[in-house]
Design a protein around this nucleic acid. Structure first.
Length: 700
DNA sequence: CAGTGAGCGAGCTTCCGCTTGACTT
């Protein structure tokens, strides 16, 4: 019997099925050997040798693998074909050899889970690649040194329990820098002018683009009105018509990063939620009597597609969309940074159309699966073609322009229902116009606008940025966001990531004191050096040594000389302590933010953060966030006068007051409108929808 | 779609990257 060890149990099941008798496939479930959490465990004096231990809780797993290995004729280590996978293989090999000296242990790799790929891999076993293991060791030791040296600085100078690291602190820095740009941005007013025109009974808009032979730009209403007064409205004439065709390519299949981006943008999922649901689809869904893994592995940086899947999807397209089948398959090259251990994220079987598996999935699973299925099928279909018609309309010294577009060849769009892009719908319908044609003027539409500054990061955009800079890995994108939130460095407001005062303080301290380390280029340089280690041209000890000496000197100096910034953590508020009359300050505790009397420790009064005034007449209490006694379950919002006042709501109060009745607005969401605001007063019907083109208010 | 209620906030912390159950109510 041959024992094969992979990382994921779902993978183990599949592979065992492919190989049949004579093979036993077991999962290690990630690393079994790593640095202890409780101490640095790097021997600085002896060339930075890491002191590895069996990961807490993984002892039984390791024991189990050893006992199966004892009965096996040989062991094949089939952890992922990347740096971490090589290290996992290395550690397991060492553990087995220690217990079973002389055991035949080989390393095999495959980049896709297909019967052919597995059998091919089993036929070509090799040795563990020591250089790759060294590269991982370098990465691991570096991260430990950075994290376990910087975090204690924060404990000493800012607050106990905080953390810093090569990845999380750069992510925080990006968010803080963006916040500064957002806050410092000064919006500039500008105006646009559209003419509402008519042909037959069909009205359409044309935008003023040129005025007196110059590009039209107006910064005030008065300016627009002056222009309007000089444009004759009786002579709107079509002077030019241009038709061109635009082709659009489908997008490559999903990687972890692009899946998280699309799910955030299209479905409003957080990165975390996306990964949880993807994991469910990967592990398998009960469909009648059988269990089916609906998608391939969800933590990948590759857009590669196995030949089998390619054949499959082309057959599918040929059958269902014969006109949209390109003569050659589309090849999506892996990016340079990709470690390429897994395929792209795709449906395991294209024939499981979303419609077909619908009854076995819950709503979120179906949405995410549909996204993955459509993106994959469309990525092998032909381009879409759109006919764009632009008209120039002149009157006096004014030149207007309008466009209409129509899809002339659906191509891959035929399969995209969920993935349909927004501008496909937004384009206005314009009647067919002829040259020299006179158009009826209806009215002017003048609109005030403001230049838009940069927008805050969302889950989607921070993940995109991190991936572009090579910071973090598919398995860590979602946890990076979570750690920033968990530590109260950042809050998520309307899906936007905004630093807290604590986050700003930490980021400023780290970037000022450690500009070379807390830097987007630091990881890129590290990766270059790790490549050199992997190629055998650089010794990992040397790599760490070069970094550590100056770094540690700076750590020592900062610890010795930098003044504590603990005082800046308290934010003043305009609340007054009801016990002693002193002002209250906002502090951060183990369970989040709270108000405390500035007279601490003489006055130990504390309060929850008031979010709004209690809407009950004559109550006078404040609405605060509460949780059930066990600390679990959804947050709800109740009155501080409980139990005298039993007001409660599950909708989060906003700072906005209702323009109709003056009570506060809450955040609600539903399928149709996404996130919107509504009045807490159930006798008031105020609703407020926010859309991308601006705010819309509506009453129901 | 309905659902509903403590009290803490000085105390041993922390990294990144692999991977899932095993915990508790």
């Amino acid at each position: 019997m041959t024992l094969i060890i992979v990382e994921s149990p779902a993978k183990a099941l599949t592979i065992e099925k492919y190989l049949g008798s004579g093979y036993k496939v077991e999962a290690s479930m990630g690393h079994l050997v790593d640095l202890p959490k409780s101490r640095l465990a790097i021997d600085i004096e002896h060339d930075f040798e890491p002191q590895y231990i069996t990961v807490r809780g993984k002892g039984p797993k390791l024991k189990e693998l050893l006992s199966i290995a004892a009965r096996a004729d040989e062991v094949l280590l089939a952890s992922d074909n990347d740096r971490e996978g090589e290290a996992i293989a290395f550690h397991i090999r060492n553990a087995i050899l220690k217990k079973l000296p002389g055991k035949t242990i080989k390393r095999i790799v495959f980049n896709e889970i297909t019967p052919d790929a597995i059998r091919e891999a089993v036929r070509h076993p090799r040795e563990v690649e020591e250089n790759k293991v060294c590269a991982q060791k370098g990465r691991r030791v570096l991260d430990r040194l950075v994290g376990y040296n910087l975090s204690p600085i924060l404990w000493a100078k800012v607050k106990n329990g905080l953390s810093a690291g090569r990845v999380q602190s750069v992510a925080l820095r990006l968010i803080c820098e963006r916040e500064r740009e957002v806050v410092n941005f000064i919006p500039e007013e500008y105006w646009t002018l559209d003419a509402l025109l008519n042909k037959g009974k069909v009205p359409f808009k044309a935008s003023l683009v040129k005025w007196q032979d110059r590009k039209f730009e107006a910064t005030s209403k008065k300016e627009v009105e002056t222009v309007i007064s000089q444009i004759p409205t009786g002579s709107m004439t079509v002077t030019d018509k241009e038709i061109r065709k635009k082709q659009q390519k489908p997008k490559p299949p999903f990687t972890t990063s692009t899946l998280q981006q699309a799910a955030a943008n299209r479905l409003g999922f957080t990165s975390r939620k996306t990964m949880q649901i993807a994991q469910q689809l990967y592990e398998g869904i009960s469909m009648g009597s059988s269990r089916v893994g609906l998608i391939t592995y969800m933590r990948t940086d590759s857009t590669r597609i196995s030949d089998v899947a390619l054949d499959d999807v082309r057959k599918y397209i040929k059958e269902h969309y014969p006109k949209a089948l390109p003569s050659e398959p589309r090849i999506y090259a892996a990016s340079q940074k990709a470690q390429d251990a897994h395929e792209a994220i795709r449906p395991t079987y294209v024939s499981y159309e979303p419609e077909k598996v619908k009854e076995y999935l819950n709503r979120d699973q179906l949405k995410l699966y549909t996204l993955i299925w459509e993106r994959f099928v469309s990525c092998q279909m032909s381009n879409s073609e759109t006919r764009l018609t632009s008209y120039t309309i002149k009157s006096g010294e004014a030149e207007f322009r309008c466009h209409s577009s129509a899809v002339s060849e659906k191509g891959f769009l035929a399969v995209c229902k969920l993935l349909k892009s927004k501008d496909d719908d937004d384009a206005q319908r314009i009647p067919d116009l002829k040259l020299e044609e006179r158009l009826t003027f209806v009215e002017w539409k003048k609109d005030q606008h403001f230049t838009q500054g940069p927008s805050r990061y969302t889950d989607a955009s921070i993940v995109k940025m991190l991936e572009e800079k090579g910071i973090g890995r598919p398995s860590t994108y979602a946890p990076i966001i979570s750690v920033l939130l968990d530590r109260y460095y950042v809050v998520r407001k309307n899906k936007q990531l905004q630093p807290t005062v604590l986050g700003e303080i930490i980021s400023d301290l780290l970037t000022e004191q450690f500009p070379e380390t807390i830097n987007v280029d630091f990881t890129a340089k590290m990766e270059d050096r790790l490549d050199a280690v992997e190629e055998g041209t650089l010794d990992w000890h040397r790599m760490i040594g070069d970094f550590y000496q100056p770094f540690h000197e700076k750590v020592r100096q900062v610890q010795a000389t930098l003044e504590s910034v603990k005082g800046f953590l308290e934010e003043p508020t305009d609340q007054i302590c009801e016990k002693c009359g002193r002002p209250m300050v906002k502090k951060l505790g183990k369970y989040g933010f709270f108000l405390a009397c500035s007279g601490f420790p003489e006055c130990r009064n504390t309060q929850s953060i008031p979010l709004a005034d209690c809407p009950r007449e004559g109550c006078g209490g404040k609405i605060v966030a509460r949780k059930k006694a066990n600390g679990r379950g959804r947050e709800f919002y109740g009155c501080t006068n409980y139990p005298q006042c039993d007001f409660i709501s599950y909708f989060k109060p906003t700072e906005q007051k209702c323009p109709k009745c003056g009570q506060f607005l809450v955040e609600k969401s539903d399928k149709v409108h996404g996130i919107y605001r509504a009045c807490i007063n159930d006798k008031c019907d105020f609703l407020h929808y926010e859309s991308e083109d601006g705010d819309g208010e509506r009453q129901h």
